[in-house]
Amino acid sequence: MDLMPTELLYRADAYIRDGAATVLAAGPDGILLDRTPFYAQAGGQPGDAGVLRWAGGETTITKAVKGPEDGVLHLAAADAVLPPVGASVTAALDWAPRHRHMRMHTALHLLCSLIPGAGVTGGQIGADRSRLDFDLSDPPAKEWLTERLNALVAADHPVDERWITEAELETNPGLVRTLSVQPPRGGGRIRLVRIGPGDAPIDLQPCGGTHVRSTAEIGRVEVTKLENKGRQNRRVYLVLGE
């Protein structure tokens, strides 16, 4: 399958639930569109599911994943009917889990802000429960983390983004909290997600995921468990209220 970059509609607006697209390729490796609202699995955030509809047919997409050359592959069941190449389709998200992933992802950024100076060694975003692993020997109590997280949520801080050059990131490496995964380089610029005011952000770090527009949209959160995953590795579990 020949691949090419896919226009990521969620980069302009993470709340886009569907969009018109053209099928560039379709086969056992996935369906390639010229543009998509689907987030491709990366950075601990699951790939979106949903449906593709076209004149005379539709198929369920179980997950979106990254393909070569910055393409996004939409995975269908092995026996699914595939849209013909060149067809115009509507790509529609399964919105409920995507929105929970957006709330969760933003909540994890707030969690990072409460444990400054500790590198993030791993993480996983889920619709029901998420986690972050920190290079840390003595984490705060889960009750304290829950209280502070909900205070930040209730403060209704804005969430937005800005872009910097790769050279700017090199001069400020402390922006990168993840120890195991580095922001992708080679495109010339890096996307930063910022929570809070521009002159004094609560959290500011490279991120390619999807987020809500304000912390109040996260809703109530709770840190349910702290686990010791090694001499200097602590896992923090987080759940959302309804």
Rank of each mutant, 00 (worst) to 15 (best):
R148V: 04
M104S: 11
G117C: 13
I31V: 14
M102Y: 00
P139D: 12
A151M: 15
T106Q: 07
L75W: 11
G44E: 07
E69G: 02
L136F: 10
Q41F: 07
H101G: 03
H99P: 01
A96P: 11
G86K: 10
A49C: 09
Y39Q: 06
L52N: 01
F38T: 06
T60D: 13
L136K: 12
A107K: 00
P46S: 08
L145K: 09
K66P: 02
L136D: 13
A76V: 15
H74D: 09
V72N: 02
G47N: 11
L152H: 03
T62N: 05
A77I: 11
R162H: 14
D79C: 00
M102P: 01
H109F: 06
L152P: 01
I31A: 05
R35L: 09
R162Q: 14
C112E: 15
E69A: 11
G57E: 08
V159K: 06
A154F: 12
W54Q: 08
T90H: 00
D128K: 10
T146D: 10
S88Q: 14
C112W: 10
V81C: 03
E58M: 12
S113D: 09
G43L: 08
E69Q: 14
E143K: 03
A77R: 07
F134M: 09
E143W: 03
R53H: 08
H74P: 05
L111D: 04
T60G: 06
P84C: 05
H74F: 07
D94W: 03
D128P: 03
E143Y: 02
V85R: 12
E69S: 11
A127V: 12
R103G: 01
N150M: 07
P139F: 03
L93E: 06
P37M: 02
L149G: 05
G67W: 01
L108I: 14
L111W: 02
W144F: 11
A55M: 01
A87W: 04
G123T: 13
R100M: 01
I61L: 08
I115P: 08
G126C: 13
V72G: 02
A151I: 15
E58S: 15
T90R: 08
T36C: 09
A155Y: 09
R98S: 01
L111M: 10
P46G: 06
T59G: 04
D133H: 06
D160L: 07
P84S: 12
P116Y: 08
S113W: 02
L32P: 00
P97M: 00
T106R: 01
H74S: 03
A155H: 10
T60F: 07
V89M: 05
H105A: 02
P83Q: 12
D79W: 00
G50F: 02
W95T: 11
A40L: 10
Q124G: 13
K142E: 15
V89N: 02
K142V: 12
A78D: 14
L82K: 01
A127R: 09
H101E: 08
R100E: 13
A87D: 11
I31M: 03
A92E: 15
R100G: 00
G50S: 08
C112P: 05
Q124L: 06
G71Y: 01
G119N: 08
V153K: 05
